[in-house]
């Protein structure tokens, strides 16, 4: 290694792998392409130069979709003379009796709070740079929060749960899907699409160059 320590430290051209600590020096071209760690294969950059505008717009769309999901019927059930319909809010508060209250709270966090908070944190952290403004206060904390919330936002897992539940009661009653159901499907697809733009390097580098 010919470079001195002082050249490497705080130099955004150097990326250390978060999983194995291997140090990489990237050229400007490599920083905007897809790269993996040479040692452990961890995805270091996703190479999305348009990442910020995509992430912000997808995050805004997700937040609006979540609003639709919450306040429209999700599924409705007909069994002879009995009918019931459930919104996502009903699903969450199905647990809200006695000792199950904490569980209702956990489900609320996993399928509503975590995804919405993640979207809002991304908008808060990244939107100012698109609008030509300096970073908002605490933008670093917001972006870190958005990354750390990823495993706890479980919208896609909830959809698989819905599929399993539908099969379990298929013999019992006829089921109709509501607006919220399709909004939720769209939300899951948008989140998956958004994750392909969540390049740590691009987002952090842009935040660093846009300091107040």
């Amino acid at each position: 290694m010919t470079d001195t320590i002082h050249e490497v430290a705080y130099n955004p051209a150097y990326i250390a792998c978060p999983h194995c600590d291997t140090l990489h020096r990237f050229s400007d071209d490599e920083l905007i392409s897809r790269t993996r760690c040479a040692s452990c294969g961890y995805r270091l950059t996703l190479g999305k130069s348009e990442a910020i505008i995509r992430v912000v717009s997808l995050a805004l769309t997700s937040t609006i979709l979540m609003g639709i999901v919450l306040f429209t019927p999700f599924l409705s059930l007909n069994a002879g003379s009995f009918a019931s319909s459930a919104s996502v809010v009903d699903v969450i508060f199905g647990f809200s009796t006695g000792i199950m209250v904490p569980l209702a709270f956990a489900v609320l966090c996993f399928i509503v709070v975590a995804p919405v908070l993640r979207s809002l944190a991304l908008v808060y952290a990244l939107a100012p740079s698109l609008a030509g403004l300096k970073n908002s206060i605490g933008a670093e904390y917001a972006l870190r929060l958005a990354f750390s919330l990823k495993p706890w936002a479980m919208a896609e897992i909830f959809m698989v749960g819905v599929a399993v539940a539908l099969v379990k009661i298929a013999g019992l009653a006829t089921i109709e899907t509501g607006v919220a159901f399709w909004a939720f499907v769209l939300l899951v697809l948008l989140n998956a699409f958004q994750d392909t733009f969540m390049c740590r390097n691009t987002l952090w580098a842009s935040l660093a160059t846009n300091r107040a």
Binding site: A9, Y10, I15, A16, C20, T22, R200, W204
Partner: peptide, 21 residues
């Protein structure tokens, strides 16, 4: 001969990948 950040007396940020003293 891959080099880690620790090998050269530096510390890496696991959140954003930047290398620091």
């Amino acid at each position: 001969s891959l080099i880690t950040a620790r090998d050269v007396g530096l510390v890496a940020c696991t959140s954003c990948g930047l290398v620091a003293h």
